[in-house]
Design a protein around this nucleic acid. Structure first.
Length: 851
RNA sequence: GCGAAAGUGGCGGAAUUGGCAGACGCGCUGGACUUAGGAUCCAGUAGGUUUUACCUGUAGGGGUUCGAGUCCCCUCUUUCGCACCA
């Protein structure tokens, strides 16, 4: 753990700073008592639902959490000031392999460690001063939560969105479980980075592919980063093309392929099938003596799926001895079994056009398969013998019957139609995304509510028997297989249908299932009749502002959208998307790298909170960079935030009486607008302070509400503070000046509230407020005071600044031109030259073009 | 390879629509005060020169414009995502 370079002993001899510890604890207590987060269901106020991705309860509040929730809490407090009925709930994504692995390593039970961690984390969240609605806390590992996960599984099943399939799966040896495609990164487990192997298993799948088209449609989100939308679209990977049926020669069956290049269909010279293809499997059975074929297929199938699907794998194949017919031109086409076709994608078969596809080209060259040019390069005629790569660009069609001479790109659609008209196939789309495998062979997860009966087959657990409670009395880690297999009392149950002995499913669900609907559970977290009351969900959903890491772009955020759309189809929710606005916050880096225990560059937020306060940490995290960018941790710069808060504290401490009486003075002049406006005849530094006050409030408002750029909002506060402190002598000032000074100070607590709520609340009270800041409304500014009497014009000659000009704001354009030309330094630069043009930008500058 | 985002002082980063580049903070330099400190206050801080001023400067090169960090074209670098997807 890297601490600040500062030692504890130095702390003790340091000078006084504001008593943040006492202040923070006091307000944390008071907020809890006064329940500042309202979150009343259906309150007659506009609602605002702020949600930060719930954490895995590691027991330690990581700096990344601190950053994530500081953003969420800033938004929460802003929305409270705006008068919204705000909900900011918190819970725990508590199932999963880390808890189980930790329990194995420490010879304990995941339930014990998880609950301990939850308690520890709740304290740390409170110490950060987040305005969280603890009444709504959920934890996915508790039966009152996962009961409804099982219920949703059943609903999915009943709607044909769940199925079981045996196939080769990504298998992590370390985690002893299957991983979804989304959870494999560069051929390794996303969690433990162990290399993923292939294992044939029977698995439960969610048919997310039924929603592909809708998942591609982002028209119902209010504000999502373009980057995330693009990543999801890419992940779903829609390609438009044509499915074509190639009949086998001397056989009643056929091979269906998908292609995005129907324009090359006249150039097909072979078919490429993967060994897993049903036809190939059939041929293997028919020809038990074909040693070569058996050996090849066996070898390819058992090769690591990841390894097989990389570009640099050497293409291999074996001729099946069979042919099929190209329906468009009657060509006889060789059928090959290859290692470069993926069974999972589309129809699991490829029409090979070696002249116009690089992969097919390489393969055809290797095995001496004929090539046929059907797209000509308009620049230079292609000759097969001279080609050293496939010609994949568009061009002019040739040897393609009635399409000869046409531009290949524009002919694509007509060929598709021609194929449809002749019943050779159809125009369709293909998707990269596969169904979501949710089975995990681990103990610490939500049990799948399925029972296997010899008589009745696969039987759903009846609603009345839910939840299927995860048995606690399990020896975790004693076996290399699923620990649930060692609990016969739990596994062996009577069949709910026929009553005969049956067995429970021992797979548990991927934890991403748990997190796919938690945001909806928060709207009605204690409901024991249904997952949530649709009326309550209708009030709160969609989540107005969701905050989380980019790493979930193609996992959690995609799964949650899928489940949400399913719940909408059931009528449980009305909106089309779960998360209206999404903010992907950056990581906290140290020395340019992600913090990690192994690198030893972890900063402990608790250490900072104990020494400099939660307010300091929060201000630092938000000030260091915009919320969606990474924050570079810097020990020294944290001190800057601490000093800033200290300066604010000192200002209020030294001038308490002045501010309080100044506020009274301001109220006298205009009771409707407290303090902020006073004598219009003010000039000099107080006029400037008044201008700065209104300017900073305006900038803060825009940065907070429109731009969500809290670093510049904090900058605006610092600038106002500097402007106030710049006034050195307050001993002998007029009542109007006093009111201006006070109004500048009075607005500070409001401006600080989203970022440093404890100090802000303390100062608000100090200057005599009778409400809490969440009820104080938004700080106000008045355009009247943003209009300056004089404007500084910049004068450019040929684009270079040659002078400045102070002019009354009502100067006419003609006068401005005249004055600009009179500036001494301007005259030097235009002397002896011809003025071609003078451009006046009102309120800003004069640009003179000379030759 | 494909797709996307980004490149600004010693550092984090500002510059909202093309209009004073470097706000704000850190660090640094000098000074004041002193209870000798991670305190506070004052001055300075893009680089350069012949310093009331001028020149150069937002990865590099070109272009549009009275005017470009911002718009257009090319190149380079970095980061991220996808990667035999037919």
């Amino acid at each position: 753990m890297t601490h600040l370079e500062l030692t504890g002993s130095k702390m003790e001899v340091g000078t006084m700073e504001y008593p943040f510890g006492a202040i923070e604890r006091k307000w944390q207590r008071l907020w809890k008592e006064r329940r500042i987060v309202q979150a009343g269901d259906g309150l007659p106020k506009p609602k605002y639902y702020v949600l930060s991705m719930f954490p895995y309860p590691s027991g330690i509040l990581h700096i990344g959490h601190a950053s994530n929730y500081s953003i969420g809490d800033a938004i929460t407090r802003l929305k409270m000031m705006q008068g919204f009925n705000v909900m900011q709930p918190m819970g725990y994504d508590a199932f999963g392999m880390p808890a189980e692995n930790f329990a194995i390593a420490h010879n304990t039970h995941p339930r014990i460690t998880t609950e301990e961690s939850v308690t520890a984390m709740r304290h740390q969240f409170e110490r950060m001063g987040f305005a969280l609605h603890w009444d709504r806390e959920v934890s996915t590992c508790r039966p009152d939560y996962y009961r409804w996960g099982q219920y949703i599984f059943k609903k999915l099943y009943e709607n044909g969105l769940v199925y079981r399939k045996k196939s080769f799966q990504n298998w992590c040896v370390r985690c002893q479980t299957v991983l979804a495609n989304e959870q494999v990164e560069n051929g390794a487990c996303w969690r433990c980075h162990t290399e993923v192997e292939q294992k044939e298993l029977e698995q439960w799948y969610f048919r997310i592919t039924r929603y592909t088209e809708e998942l591609l449609d982002f028209s119902h989100v209010t504000d999502w980063p373009e980057r995330v939308i693009l990543m999801q679209k890419h992940w779903i990977g829609k390609s438009e093309g044509v499915e074509i049926i190639f009949p086998l020669q001397d056989d009643s069956r056929s091979i269906t392929i998908f292609t995005t290049r129907p324009d090359t269909v006249y150039g097909v010279t072979f078919m490429a099938l993967p060994p897993e293809h049903p036809l190939v499997q059939e041929w293997l059975e028919k020809e038990p003596d074909n040693q070569e074929l058996h050996e090849f297929c066996h070898r390819v199938i058992n090769k690591d799926k990841i390894e097989r699907s990389t570009e640099n794998t050497i293409k291999e194949g074996i001729f099946s001895g069979r042919y099929c017919i190209n329906p468009l031109n009657g060509d006889r086409v060789q059928v090959w079994i290859t290692n470069y076709v993926l069974i999972e994608y589309c129809t699991g078969a490829v029409m090979a056009v070696p002249a116009h596809d690089q992969r097919d080209f390489e393969f055809a060259r290797k095995y001496d398969i004929p090539m046929k040019i059907v797209i000509q390069n308009p620049q230079q005629d292609l000759v097969i013998r001279e080609m050293d790569a496939a010609y994949v660009e568009p061009g002019i069609m040739t040897a393609s019957a009635q399409f000869d001479g046409r531009d290949s790109e524009s002919a694509k659609h007509d060929i598709g139609k021609w194929i449809e008209e002749n019943n050779w196939g159809r125009i369709t789309s293909a998707y990269r995304m596969r169904d979501w495998g949710i089975s995990r062979q681990r103990y610490w997860g939500c049990p799948i509510p399925i029972i296997y009966c010899d008589e009745c087959g696969v039987v759903l657990v009846p609603d009345s028997d839910l939840p299927v409670v995860l048995p606690d009395e399990v020896q975790v880690g004693k076996t290399t297989q699923n620990p649930l297999l060692s609990v016969p009392d739990w596994i062996n149950v009577p069949c709910p249908q026929c009553g005969k002995p049956a067995r429970r499913e021992t797979d548990t669900m991927d934890t991403f299932v748990d997190s796919s609907w938690y945001y909806a559970r928060y709207t009605d977290p204690h409901n024991d009749q249904m997952p949530f009351d649709p009326a309550k969900a209708d009030y709160w959903l969609p989540v107005d502002q969701y905050i989380g890491g980019i790493e979930h772009a193609c996992m959690h955020l995609l799964y949650a959208r899928f489940i949400h759309k399913f719940m909408r189809d059931l009528g449980w929710v009305k909106c089309d998307e779960p998360f209206a606005r999404l903010l992907t916050q950056g990581m906290v880096l140290k020395d340019g790298a992600k913090m990690s225990k192994t690198k030893g560059n972890v900063v402990d937020p608790q250490y900072i909170i104990d020494r400099f306060g939660a307010d300091t940490l929060r201000v630092y995290l938000l000030f260091a960079s915009p919320p969606d960018k990474d924050v570079e941790w810097n020990d020294e710069a944290v001190m800057g935030s601490f000093r800033f808060l200290n300066r604010v504290w000192r200002l209020f401490e030294t001038h308490t009486d002045l501010i309080v009486s100044g506020i009274m003075e301001g109220k006298k002049s205009d009771p409707a607008i407290p303090a902020i406006d006073a004598d219009p005849n003010i000039s000099g530094e107080f006029a400037h302070l008044r201008y700065m006050t209104h300017r900073c409030v305006k900038r803060w408002t825009e940065d907070c509400l429109n731009r969500m750029q809290y670093n510049t909002a904090i900058t605006a506060i610092m600038e106002l503070l500097n402007a106030i402190i710049a006034i050195k002598d307050t001993s002998d000032i007029s009542p109007a000046e006093k009111a201006i000074f006070a109004s500048a100070c009075q607005v500070l607590p409001q401006l600080l509230y989203p970022f440093a709520p404890h100090l802000a609340e303390e100062l608000w009270m100090l200057i005599g407020a009778d409400n809490l800041l969440n009820d104080s409304g938004m700080p106000r500014f008045d355009e009247r005071w943003l209009v300056l009497d004089t404007i500084t014009y910049v004068v450019q000659v040929n684009g270079k600044i040659r002078g400045k000009l102070e002019l009354p704001s009502d100067t006419t354009e003609q006068e401005i031109k005249t004055k600009a030309l009179e500036v001494e330094n301007v005259q030097i630069h235009i002397e002896g030259k011809t003025i071609r043009k003078i451009i006046v930008i009102p309120g800003k500058m004069v640009s003179i073009a000379v030759v």
